[in-house]
Design a protein around this nucleic acid. Structure first.
Length: 600
RNA sequence: CGGGGCGUGGCGCAGCUUGGUAGCGCGGGUGCUUUGGGAGCACUAGGUCGCAGGUUCGAAUCCUGUCGCCCCGACCA
């Protein structure tokens, strides 16, 4: 490819002010992407080459484990999503599914994921256990109306994703395929030249049993990963479990009541009364909104020095009730409290709250759902709200179980916690970018969509399913986040748009030009991805652009052309070696081999 | 949805407080010089100042409304 005729670069001199993180800045500055709207980007030719490289790495690996590539529609009928009972949850309120009506008034949604469509199609094709297992995948644009798109391709509303769906005759076969897929994912990311960590994860709105996320570790990541140094445990914060630190025993209090004027936060109470946060039980009120429009008031208790994990709480409630929980809102607005509760001031609510506190005319359900984390229920003596303004209470021998509390893990694990009682290993924390997620869905979708097969015993059974996603455009940006320097991108060679860029210093000089053309021709004939910067620009401009767009090898053709000598430069290491033009090919082959092996 | 900020040529910005008819750097075009890390000189094209009202003799500037974008939070496979 030639910069002047077939491959204009479109690099920018200044960094557009809209970009916050380095990878986003470099994508814009390097001319890889252009913003069309909030969270919607055009992938420029140079970006599309990266996308194609990543796609072919994925194809190669997935085909090797027996997956089949196809392409599914992006516009899905609402009825199909109603069958899986996901339409409401994905469209209502702040749902992420773009939806619209056609001219007949029929409802459609732009696909954020494809379980429904593929399950429907697979069930038509698959009749017998003899056809199983099967795994279909596609690489396609997905749409998600994110509440706040940000960081360029990291969280965009339109993005490219590889999504795969497997079908099995048994749970066991699903589990073994899931393992196989996990290994394939490891290979894919390694073949993309990325450093990743596999972590246990929450399966979120997709649902299902087991799920694992693949994270690129980077400070710009939006997820928090907790792990042990030895690698014995790694999980997303949403899912992570740990043993909380020891609570400090409460000293004896003579009176039952504490005057705590205007002390609404744990911090205030501790400061003014010489207490430790671990001696307090924090009481948080939530409102759960269900699909059938009911609103349940929830009271959640946790030790004062710990934090409630809303994902865990959400999942717990969702499992407990027959209808789907759509939203879980923390109640911290006093007007909402006053409207629904009798004389209950926020900040002073205690675990011994009574059902009578819910007003008759409230549209909430009239009894509390009570949930306590073990960190709270393990305390025998503690301080908590007195259910009266400016008052806290000393609780002695309070039993959460006797007061109808459900005891469950609703706590955020944190850095420094131990992972189990028998181990001294402590959790560490890092930020990560989720680039892949694999799920064992089980029979959730095949039941709802009635996807059956005849098993060996002649009985009709629901298909066992897994689903597997990779954020293709997100990989590209994550790779930049992990591989850049002050001059620009340093692509891993595996996913770089080109392997080599040729920079003739003075393209008007007939000797340099002749040598440049010879070298370009030779590399092209040897099927090497090479970009020729044949612009009639000053050397500095071409050097800056080459460094910015980050192609791993640069061939600089300058004044030594007369002796058929050129420079071979490695972008990331900034090393330069002089060599004869006829040694270029072998040097590139050996140097790139080193690079491939280092990264994969 | 709450808080903050911004909309002025392709990009980055100044001008707005205190109204007088739009400017800087980069980029584009032409010519000459230059040519190993974003060149110099000269000439040149390009903007109804987000949009709509209003105040005024006069609005990029003041007022009202509206749209859009960015950041923080809430939230989110």
């Amino acid at each position: 490819m030639r910069v002047t005729t077939s491959f204009p670069l479109g690099t920018l001199r200044d960094t557009p002010s809209e970009a916050e993180i380095i990878s986003h800045q470099l994508l814009l500055k390097g001319g890889y992407i252009r913003r069309v709207n909030s969270g919607i980007y055009a992938y420029m030719p140079i970006m599309f080459r990266v996308i194609e490289k990543i796609s072919s790495i994925i194809d190669k690996e997935l085909i090797s484990i027996g997956c089949t590539k196809l392409l599914l529609p992006q516009l899905h009928p609402a009825d199909l999503w109603r069958k899986s009972e996901r339409w409401e949850g994905y469209t209502e309120g702040e749902g992420i599914m773009f939806n619209l009506k056609d001219r007949q008034g029929k409802e459609f949604g732009l696909a954020p994921t494809h379980e429904e469509v593929i399950t429907c199609i697979a069930s038509e094709i698959i009749n017998s256990y003899k056809q199983l297992p099967q795994c279909y995948y596609q690489i396609q644009t997905k749409f998600r109306d994110e509440i706040r798109p940000r960081f360029g391709l990291m969280r965009s509303r339109e993005f490219i994703m590889k999504d795969g769906y497997s079908f099995h005759s048994s749970k066991k076969d699903l589990a073994s395929f899931y393992e196989k897929m996990g290994n394939a994912y490891g290979n894919i990311f390694q073949n993309c030249g990325l450093q990743t960590v596999g972590v246990e994860a929450d399966s979120g709105a997709i649902g299902g049993a087991s799920s694992k996320e693949f994270m690129v570790t980077a400070n710009a990541g939006e997820d928090t990963i907790l792990f042990t140094e030895s690698g014995s445990y790694a999980a997303n914060l949403e899912k992570a479990f740990s043993i909380p630190s020891q609570a400090i025993p409460l000293k004896k209090y003579s009176s039952e009541w504490l005057d705590t004027p205007n002390q609404k936060t744990i911090e205030d109470i501790c400061k003014k009364n010489n207490l430790d946060p671990s001696q307090i039980v924090k009481v948080v009120i939530f409102i759960g909104k269900f699909e059938d429009k009911t609103e349940l008031p929830i009271i959640a208790c946790i030790r004062g020095d710990q934090h409630i994990n809303e994902v865990k709480l959400f999942n717990l409630l969702n499992k407990k009730y027959a209808t789907n929980l759509i939203k879980l809102n923390i109640v911290e607005d006093n007007t909402i409290i006053k409207k629904n509760l009798v004389n209950l001031p926020l900040g002073f609510i205690g675990p011994d709250i009574d059902n009578k506190t819910i007003k008759i005319d409230s549209n909430w359900d009239k009894s509390w759902i009570k949930i306590a984390d073990e960190s709270a229920s393990n305390l025998s003596t503690f301080i908590s709200g007195g259910n009266k303004v400016n008052t806290h209470k000393v609780f002695r021998e309070f039993s959460f179980t006797e007061k109808d509390y459900l005891i469950a893990d609703i706590r955020n694990a944190k850095k420094g916690d131990r992972i189990n009682i028998n181990s001294d290993e402590k959790l560490q924390e890092k930020k990560g970018i989720e680039i892949g997620h694999i799920f064992q869905l089980g029979q959730k979708y095949s039941e709802k969509l009635n996807a059956n097969f005849s098993d060996k015993d002649g009985q009709l059974k629901n298909l066992w399913m897994g689903c597997y996603g990779i954020g293709v455009t997100r990989i590209a940006q994550a790779a930049i986040e992990q591989n850049h320097d002050e001059h620009g991108i340093c692509w891993p060679i595996q996913i770089s748009p080109f392997q080599i860029i040729i920079i003739p210093i003075n393209f008007k000089d007939p000797i340099q030009r002749k040598l440049t053309e010879e070298i370009y021709e030779d590399l092209m004939n040897n099927k090497i991805d090479v970009l020729l910067d044949d612009r009639d620009d000053r050397a500095g401009v071409k050097f800056k652009d080459a460094d910015l767009i980050g192609i791993p090898f640069q061939i600089i053709i300058g004044r030594d052309s007369i002796n058929k000598e050129v420079e071979f430069s490695c972008r990331a290491q900034k090393t330069k070696i002089k060599l004869k033009a006829n040694k270029l090919l072998e040097t590139f082959i050996s140097e790139s081999k080193v690079m491939y092996n280092k990264n994969s």
